[in-house]
Design a protein around this nucleic acid. Sequence first.
DNA 1: AGAAAGAAGTTAGAATGTCTTACATCGATC
DNA 2: GATCGATGTAAGACATTCTAACTTCTTTCT
Lengths: 201, 201
Amino acid sequence: MKQATKVTGKAGYHHGDLRQQLVTATRELVEEKGPEGFSVSEACRRAGVSTAAPYRHFSDKTDMLAAVILEGMTEMTTRLHAAAAPFPHGSVEGIIASGVSYVAFAEAHPGVFRVMFSEDYKREDLEEAGHDCYGGLLMQVAAYLGKTEVDEDVLKASFPLWTFVHGMSFLRIDGKAEFAKMQTPVEDLVADATRRLLTGR
Amino acid sequence: MKQATKVTGKAGYHHGDLRQQLVTATRELVEEKGPEGFSVSEACRRAGVSTAAPYRHFSDKTDMLAAVILEGMTEMTTRLHAAAAPFPHGSVEGIIASGVSYVAFAEAHPGVFRVMFSEDYKREDLEEAGHDCYGGLLMQVAAYLGKTEVDEDVLKASFPLWTFVHGMSFLRIDGKAEFAKMQTPVEDLVADATRRLLTGR
DNA sequence: AGAAAGAAGTTAGAATGTCTTACATCGATC
DNA sequence: GATCGATGTAAGACATTCTAACTTCTTTCT
């Protein structure tokens, strides 16, 4: 009656990999029904355990969501990195590719993206994950500006870029692009804006 | 006729102005605890009625939130309009002022702002309210471009502006401006970006 | 004016959800 | 091979959304 969870076939009282399975279930639910629609009970049902089981692995309902956020954050970081990789470090093209990838992540996982920014999950690990992610852009912009470290100029140049792709992400997952009758591809919008914000033309 | 008499409070069995009072309570709660923290029960407690009372005025919990969204949307519309009013119609300054005002609204009412864009509240009245709001920007940009009506060019020029202030709003209410070590005033950030996105330099 | 109709409250309760407490089971260790 | 700690379950306290049936007040119709 247990789901076949492990390849080794663990079908007993102990689950074997419950924590990760709950995170996955949570993530799926958040994706399907939105952050609001997620319930611990439902995740338990999916994982095939009682509703009390998660509390061995998570302190809270929000703790489960935090785990999802963390997963999402690291995934986003690697994605942005990978997107920029083919281009020279510090090139406008690389920065644009990162930006496009940011929006793409939001569109691929709107639920997770929303949770990632939905509330004040002021937690050390999440902050750190955020820093890692944003740090990638800072490095690229620094290189673009010919700097070896992140100084005031780099911060000032980077933030508007983030702002733009962040706004673009939300508008798109909220269907506001259709609302605004904009069917220009994201790639073009991000490329144009990034160029203008960065190079000034 | 009845509203005027019962403004002072619930003297009797009938409340007199429950609907509006519930909307207000909902809005306060959303502001205090965020969209997630809001509960119908709590709103009822604040309005001093039983938990069943709201269902005479709203179909749903989400219906109550929708009312708050509508209020917020119209308030935002008037704000943006007012902000641009002092400047010549179609001037960059007017457009910038609107943008700054957009972010200011988000910072003044982060909870409401978040609900306004948190979910797919696909409802006719909300869509319409959104159109009214965005329409203001479209008009200004049209005038800026020397057009008398909203055509493709206007749409293309306007959307990135919205995108930017929208992203800025979210980043700020999420505390990401501090996170990114940006303490440049919003006014400057919006002004710079708007100018660049719009005029190209 | 007074009865009937309808609007807008109330209480009670079903269904669902979060989280705690006390207990059961399993794997690993000594 | 008995024990112990980690991990699961069962039962339940309490909150929440929403419905159903009843009550009270307002309005409207003769």
